[in-house]
Design a protein around this nucleic acid. Sequence first.
DNA 1: AGTGTAGGCCAACAACTGTTGACATGTCGT
DNA 2: ACGACATGTCAACAGTTGTTGGCCTACACT
Lengths: 187, 187
Amino acid sequence: MPTARRSDTTRAAILEAARERFAADGYERATIRAIARDADIDPSMVMRYYGNKEGLFAAASAIDLRLPDLTALPDRDRVGAVLVEHFLDRWEDDEVLTALLRVGVTNEAGAARMRSVFAEQLGPVVRDLRPGAADAPRRAALVASQILGMALTRYVLRLPPAVDMPRTDVIAWLAPTIQHYLTADQP
Amino acid sequence: MPTARRSDTTRAAILEAARERFAADGYERATIRAIARDADIDPSMVMRYYGNKEGLFAAASAIDLRLPDLTALPDRDRVGAVLVEHFLDRWEDDEVLTALLRVGVTNEAGAARMRSVFAEQLGPVVRDLRPGAADAPRRAALVASQILGMALTRYVLRLPPAVDMPRTDVIAWLAPTIQHYLTADQP
DNA sequence: AGTGTAGGCCAACAACTGTTGACATGTCGT
DNA sequence: ACGACATGTCAACAGTTGTTGGCCTACACT
């Protein structure tokens, strides 16, 4: 176990500033200079600690969706609601998700990271829900399409009706959709 | 009626190249120089005809969703399927939609354009479907969230299961969702 | 035929980008 | 107290960006 280094606070400040900038501006417009200014350090420190801009993004975009174990849910009819609720929570308290979405749209490394996050974290959760079903990845992609679509319209594009919709209404509308994608027979 | 100018072919070439670049690269990485190179003209011509980069984007991102009149549909239960099919068509033969999506995520002018397109084109179609209903904008936003979410995962992020899904399967899965958002009672 | 003007090209600008290396400062073990 | 090493600062680099103004060319009208 590596002992705490004196520079850890600087590293952390850089990461936090980077996450904010990537989330607010996307990859290109989030400049190393602006990130360094936010973190109150010299731009060259970013290079020293993270190699280059890609390395910084890789470090800043590490994320754990913290998906719950849906098989442990007493009421199997509520998996859709639970999942929507969980994603709304995650999106609202972790700007990395918005950063990932913004960067993934214009940067191939960001898109790749987005793909692997969903394949490695959402995929297994969906698979465990219907053991032996070969179409689990497809169902996971359908879930992702609705979840990401709502995040896009509500938190990034900010379509007024999507922004104004109360959280409970979002859950009420989206839960049956997600439930359908997860549990319905193939149409 | 203004007579055809000699420069119209150049203007058109610039617009076409701009649409391609914006769709492929987003706003920041679609440089005026690259667009000019594609159109086989000098970068200064872009400025002469469109003022600046923002003006070029405004001109290149004009779009008509060509939404069908859903009230004229004989079978009211098929509005969801018709809409999904229509959007898949539009997305696959008009790169402006991808450009709008890519730019809207990192550029405020792009996001504004996206908002107005959906408010002015999708909004009325949804409103006409349930006359007198006050929640039409909300339903339109829900439809937008699912449509844009699928476009995002399939055409931009390229999640493999979403890319591999045959067109007919996409329609079969998404149609009930859209139908629900358009016609279900408030949950 | 001559001329005004629209169309087009070239070279340059100032600002900004990621990135680098040299140099100063501080901290720690000895 | 001294040297080694981590931490931080400064200035500069080469390249790219949007944008501008001057200049040349070819067409259209009288």
